[in-house]
Every structure is written in C-alpha cells, then in structure tokens.
Design a protein around this nucleic acid. Structure first.
Lengths: 340, 340
DNA sequence: TTGTACGCGTTATCAT
DNA sequence: ATGATAACGCGTACAA
C-alpha cells in the first residue's frame, strides 16, 4: 500500500528535510540549483518522491517577489472574442515564446464591469510579473491601472493615448488598407466601397483612413458602410446596404475576411459575379480567405508573430534588457487570390 | 505634485498603518471586514488611497491557503482550439459563473509537452483553488495529476477512466447522434454516410456509436469517413471520399457543423442539391449552422451552459456543498432547419 | 474596539 | 557543502 495520505496536509520542504535527514536549506538548494553533495542530493530526491512534495508557489512568490507568470488580457467584447480568428493565433504565439522562457501564460477574460475590476486587482496583486494586453481602446481604463502598477507590459495594437515607455506591437492598418485599396483600383474598378467594422477602435478607424487616402478625391463617404462587428453576417448586411446605395458598385474593400465572406454571399445572391462584376478584397488572411469561392485577395496579418513579439517585449523588460520602447510594426504582405 | 513614487517599492499594510496612525491589525480588519470604529476606518481608507496600497496576493494566499482563482485548462491541440466554436462559449459561460462568485478565471493553454508539465506545476502550486478541464482524452496524464493534488475539479466531457468523485458535465453524444440519425432516416434516406472526426476522443467515438445504433443492421462501416479534425476542409475531404465510395449516397451525418459546411460545398460542386438529392445534418448548432445555404439541421450543444455548470461544480466543492459527483448530462435538442 | 504576536512555506544570507 | 535564521506581507487568535 502506498503512503497515499491523499486527504492529509500537503508536504512541505520541512517534511522533505526531515525524511532525508538534512536541513531545509539543503532541500531548497537541490530544488533551485546550488552546491550539494551527490549523497545528500540522492537522499533528498528520494524523500521528495516519497512524501510527494510539490513546492508552494504562493510562498515562493512571496519571498522571491515574482511569479514566473505573465498575464494575457483580451479586452474584446465577447462576441468578437469568439469570432476573431486573430486572437487565438496571437495567444498561441505569445504562449510559445513565454513557454520557452519558462513562464506560465495566464489568460484573463474581461467580460463585464466586474471582471475589469477583478482583473485589475489580479494584475496589481503580484499574481503576474508582466502582462500582454490585446485590443485595448483609446482611453481604456486598463491603461491607467497599468501606469499605476508599473508592471512590465506590452500592447498588441496601439491605443493612441498609450504612455511613452509602454511598448506595443502592431501593424500599419492605415498603410496596408491604403495599399490593398490601391491594388484594387489598379484592376480598373471605378466605384469602390468599403465595409468598415468597429470604427470605434483604432484599428477600425485606421483602415477607413487608409481607404480614404487611397481613393483621394474619388472618395465618397456614402460608399462606406459601417457595421459594429467583424463578422460574417454583418458583412452580408454591409454589402446589402452598399448595393442599395450604389447598384453600379464594382469594388469592395472589406475590413476583415469574415466581412468579405458575408459580402461574397450577398453578391452571389444578387447575381453578381466575383471578380468579373465586382472585385472584393479582405483583411487578415484568416481561414476564411481560403474557404470562400473564389478565395480572397487579402492582407496577411502575422497574428502569431504579433503575440510572440509582444511576449518578447515583456520578457525583455523583465530581464532588464533593452527593448523597442516606441513599439514595433510588423509587415503585412498582400496575398492576391481570386476575388479581385 | 502627487506622491507618485512610481518606481519605489510597493506600499504594504505596514505603510498604511503608519500613515493612519493605527496598527496593522486594524488595517487588515477594514480590508477584510471586521469590527472597527468609524473614525479609524475613515483614517485608514484615506491612508490607503494616499499611499496607493494594493494587497499582495501572494502573501494573502499563503496565509489564507487559497487564491480565489479557478483554472480553465484546454487540452485540445491548438488547431482545434482555434477552430472549435464551443471552446470559447464554454469559457465565457464558466467565466460568468465564476465571476459572480468573485473568483478569477485563469485560462491555461497547453500547447506542448513542456506546457503540460508547467501547467501541472501551476495547478499543484496553490495558484488556483480549483480547476475546470476541457476535452481531456481517456488516459490523459492530467487526470493522474489531479488525483494526486486532490484539488477540486470538474471536467467538461467525460473521459472513460475518470475517477469516481471527479464530476463532469457533458452531453449524451451517443444518444443525440442516434436521435438525429434516426430523424434523418425518417426523411426517407436509404444510403446514409457519416463524416466522423477525432474518433480517438470519447466524444468522437460516441457519435459514431450512436450513428451505428440508429442504422442497426443497415449500418455499413464503409460509409463512415474518418477525418482527424472538426474542420471545414476535412469535412470537404470526408464528403469527397464518401461520394467516391458510394455515388448513390443520399444522407450524411457530419460530426460537426463545420464538417457539414465543408460537405455542403463538395455536394454543390458535384451538382447535387441539398436537401433534395442528399440530406445533411450536423452537430453543435454553432455559427456555421446558420451560415450555410441551406441552413443546417443539427444538434444544439449548450456550450455556455456546459461551462457554467462545470464552474458551479467546482464552486460547490470549494464551499463544501453537495454536488453531482457522478456527473451531469445536459439536454441537446434537435434544431431542424433546411439541410435535411 | 484595538494592538500584539505568531505562522503560512519558501528562499537567501551568513556562519560553520 | 551544510545548517540556522531572518525575511517576504498578510490574517487572525488572543490579550488588552
């Protein structure tokens, strides 16, 4: 019969020391690395296995003043959180980098006012050594909290009112929107509309800016259909609205691939052929892009890399290494497929 | 000029006590609730604001022996994690319940062998008071870890080798697969195939079982196309394979809506009309179901409720309340739309 | 009502 | 190489 003791109290360093016939200090040294005789090491390792010892992280955190954990906070409203194909990839990218550095990524979901407060407490409570924030809006309260706590942080995307010194990693939304719109114009389209989602966020607003810049004097504010979410069905609604406003439309820039997919559906229903009658381009290069018929011409967003870079930014601060305190912009190549 | 002191050391109870002219004990009492004079309370609250005090969670955890946090561990391979529409909903459902009880949900992603070990350490380290595990496989190492640590847990889905006493919440995969297959048969289909994903997981295998049970003697193992992932493109591949094996196929049960969506695409390419030539049913009642043309007849999976119930199961254990230790099965109504 | 003092489980410093 | 011992910041009996 094994020692089990399943319901009794957890074993501590003290117990291990007693079982191995050494002092707590020596036990601590074999756990954290240090000079210890082979003889003692063997005895202690046996004792650890025997009593089933596992270190208490709270105690360790308290004395070392760190947690080996980094928070990953997503501030999207939950509908978006579920839909957005980028979030998951960003998360996985960040986790890979953090994992390599032996940090635990702790994912915090903010889904209510109450959540906001609890997460703030969590971040300030020494639970994490650093934090990655995804899709904060300008004037987001979290930015104040962060500044107060002074915890190493990095943003994915860059709210305009970000304090100097808090770095971000993002993409050039304005530039890439402009580029792909220009590319679309180069195919000879004359009446180009845009389906714009989440224009209350910086990324959304920037994409509209890029679109406008590309069109220049030919820009017609009436051909921008604003919808709340980056979502298939809103893409459809946006497209319908565009078609109503301008039946002769022959080009569409959708703020995301999901929007573009919805637009494609409506175009098909309307008997319009893509790309013959209407050219459509998207944004993200997500799974949507290769699922539609025809496949989408779009802008590649390096989601995993965004996460990895953000993690790296936090790790550098943690280690006191130099980092790009003004932020990093990652390249966003155009991927040209069949939809335009 | 505010006290700022941004780069100096964090304020402690000690500092607050000094600033308010009381003892540390009294400060602690106003924070955690207890008898304290209005006069002292006012002074202390002022002092807290003044020095910018925020409690150190590690210290508190150490002394109270709990963390007010519950882990949420997803064991899916990451491709699936990104694709699966249920995971997100389960997570949000769990978070809502946890949040109401003032617990912080901590999301842990397992994406490598190294992650597995680190997460195990994390769970055993007192970081969380309980844990919700999503989509563990039978013989998953995490089950052993959990049994050892003896931390309150709940599974979403139920690995067959789950220890008694560790509760789960899930759905009756076998029963609902059987039911919807029977419903499909009732529309007069004679050659019905299945696209089965992830049959190495209990949920996947159970759905095949239900399919087989419904068909009874008419079951033809050659009409089950196994694919690895619950994913649109694998649905397409599965459908192609089915069509090859049996060109006269007139009914398809897809193990998920995403698979069904892929199948629909292939059917359309093949010039087959749905539901006239072929009836198709899915599983999940996810966003996919209303995005296809025609919309999918499918089984509703109460994802958010699964998460909420799992959270409740953990909370009950935490509070020493009685709970369904044998597990809970949630109802899965059939949603009949146009695809069959 | 308030203050004192002990302990939570570790790591780190200092002798030995 | 190892063993004492002092923190780490907080909650809480217990005494006052």
């Amino acid at each position: 019969m094994p020692p089990s003791g399943s319901s009794s109290r957890r074993a501590t360093v003290h117990d291990v020391a007693a079982a191995a016939g050494v002092s707590r200090g020596t036990v601590s040294r074999v756990i954290n690395g240090g000079y210890v005789s082979p003889r003692a090491r063997a005895a202690i390792e046996a004792a650890i296995a025997e009593v089933g010892y596992v270190p208490n992280t709270a105690a360790r955190n308290l004395v070392t003043q760190r947690s080996q954990a980094v928070g990953f906070v997503v501030l999207e409203p939950h509908v978006l959180f579920l839909e957005d194909p980028n979030i998951g990839a960003i998360m996985l990218g960040a986790n890979a980098t953090l994992s390599d550095a032996d940090y635990q990524m702790v994912n915090l979901v903010v889904d209510s006012e109450r959540d906001t407060q609890r997460v703030s407490r969590y971040l300030s409570g020494g639970f994490v050594d650093g934090v990655i924030i995804v899709s904060a809006r300008t004037h987001d309260p979290i930015i104040r909290v962060l500044a107060q706590v002074g915890i190493p942080a990095a943003f994915v995307g860059h709210p305009r009112d970000l304090d100097r010194g808090i770095p971000f990693v993002g993409i050039d939304n304005t530039g890439s929107a402009r580029l792909i719109t220009e590319r679309l114009m180069a195919t000879g389209r004359r009446r180009i509309g845009m389906i714009a989602a989440a224009v209350d966020r910086d990324s959304g607003a920037d994409r509209v800016d890029g679109f406008r810049a590309a069109l220049g004097p030919r820009f017609d504010p009436d051909l921008v259909a604003e919808v709340p979410l980056y979502d298939y069905s809103w893409g459809a609604k946006g497209m319908r609205s565009l078609l109503e406003r301008e039946p002769a439309i022959d080009g569409v820039f959708a703020g995301s691939d999901a929007l573009a997919a919805g637009a494609l559906e409506v175009l098909r229903e309307a008997g319009l052929s893509v790309p013959r009658d209407v050219g459509v381009v998207g944004f993200d290069d997500s799974a949507w892009a290769v699922r539609t018929q025809p496949q989408l011409s779009t802008i590649h967003q390096p989601a995993a890399k965004l996460g990895a870079q953000a993690a790296d930014l936090v790790l550098r601060q943690l280690r006191g290494e130099p980092y790009a305190s003004e932020g990093i912009l990652l390249p966003t190549p155009i991927v040209w497929r069949g939809s335009a």
